[in-house]
């Protein structure tokens, strides 16, 4: 086994973090992560897919949205427009031509900002993500104003509640086999975004990287 090149650490916008994987040549994709708690749970899968794509000669750019991950900004001061505005800033900072996006779960809610084609894993509506946060607060008896510890401004929560998936012919949607929502392909795997403990699913990551490589190569 050859050693994998470590991702390069970049910044975009106002000091936001972005990891870059893979060669400078070949196609490049912007990676949009899930939102809120699902981002933490899927981090291992997302990075495994990026490494898999890099090994297949495809460049991946993985920004942390403002107020998430390594961001220097606090989430409570940010709105939905800030997340959408971050995407072109990240695109500009790559310095390469981006062929399209790969989005996981709620990341697909902002993929229409990315020019080109859009690949999605188990995309979901904003309303469903907010419902999960609200029910988490209800189940634990905690303050519904800060569900699961997140402080969401009305300028984030209200547009997110209305945010749904854009539909166009350039999208490719992958879902797990037990998910009955419309999909171009269903694959077997662990719904890692649901698991309370972060989990790896290397078989799923490899399968997804193969699917993306075939999709972007066609």
């Amino acid at each position: 086994m050859t050693a994998e090149a470590a991702p390069r650490i970049c910044t975009y916008g106002n000091g936001e973090a972005m990891l870059a994987f893979g060669p400078a040549s070949g196609p490049h994709l912007l990676v949009l992560q899930p939102l809120f708690e699902e981002m933490n749970r899927t981090r291992s899968l997302v990075v495994a897919v990026c490494r898999g794509l890099a090994a297949r000669g495809i460049g991946c750019w993985l920004p942390d949205l403002p107020g998430t991950g390594e961001s220097p900004q606090a989430l409570d001061g940010l709105g939905w427009a800030d997340w959408r505005a971050a995407v072109p800033q990240a695109l500009a900072a790559t310095g390469v031509t981006i062929a399209g996006s790969i989005a996981f779960r709620g990341g697909a809610l902002i993929d229409s900002v990315v020019p080109g084609r859009h690949w999605r894993l188990a995309p979901t509506a904003g309303r469903s993500l907010l419902s999960d946060l609200r029910r988490s607060a209800l189940a634990s008896g905690s303050d519904p104003a800060t569900p699961a510890g997140y402080v969401l401004s009305p300028t984030l929560a209200e547009p997110l509640a209305a945010a749904d998936l854009s539909a166009d012919d350039t999208n490719r949607t992958i879902r797990l086999v037990r998910d009955e929502h419309p999909a171009d392909r269903r694959v077997d795997g662990i719904p890692v975004w649901r698991r309370p403990e972060p989990q790896r699913d290397d078989r799923l990551a490899g399968l997804l990287a193969d699917d993306i490589a075939a999709w972007i190569g066609t």
Binding site: R134, L138, A139, A148
Partner: peptide, 28 residues
């Protein structure tokens, strides 16, 4: 495994897979 975020995910999956709708005021 069943922390409060997992409860929320579990209920959403139950809704999707067993074709029911759960109201917020039923979650207790």
């Amino acid at each position: 495994e069943l922390d409060s975020m997992a409860v929320a995910g579990l209920l959403t999956e139950i809704e999707d897979r067993l074709h029911i709708l759960i109201d917020d005021d039923e979650v207790d």
